[in-house]
């Protein structure tokens, strides 16, 4: 979980869905101080303690990591880690 190697670069970064999943899991684990192993990727965000404010924080984090703008409603349209990562990830 800790071994993802992503540098926040200003340029466009292409990450796979799996890498983005790890990114979101780590973000939630760090910010809510929970065990990343307990974070399920196929349950809705509210079950993971993500309210509207934290959802925006996740989008902001992904914007810096991916180097592109993301619609802030993405977390509503794709309400699980898995679907959001699939939507944002590059096709592999």
């Amino acid at each position: 979980m800790e071994s993802i190697s992503i540098q926040s670069s200003p340029g466009a970064e292409t990450l796979t869905a799996v890498e983005i999943e790890n990114l979101i899991v780590n973000f939630i684990a760090t910010n809510l101080e929970v065990d990343p192993a307990g974070i399920e990727t196929d349950v809705t965000f509210d079950r993971l303690g993500v309210d509207s404010v934290v959802a925006v924080k996740i989008v902001m984090e992904l914007e810096t990591k991916l180097g592109r703008e993301i619609d802030p409603t993405a977390a509503y349209d794709y309400p699980t880690i898995e679907t959001l990562a699939q939507y944002l990830g590059s096709p592999t």
Partner: peptide
């Protein structure tokens, strides 16, 4: 300004019932 709930309300965010009631 928005107050970051992840900074101030980790305990309440971990309670799914409170998150749902807030939504």
């Amino acid at each position: 300004e928005s107050t970051n709930s992840a900074s101030y309300s980790k305990d309440q965010l971990r309670n799914h019932r409170i998150v749902r009631l807030s939504q």
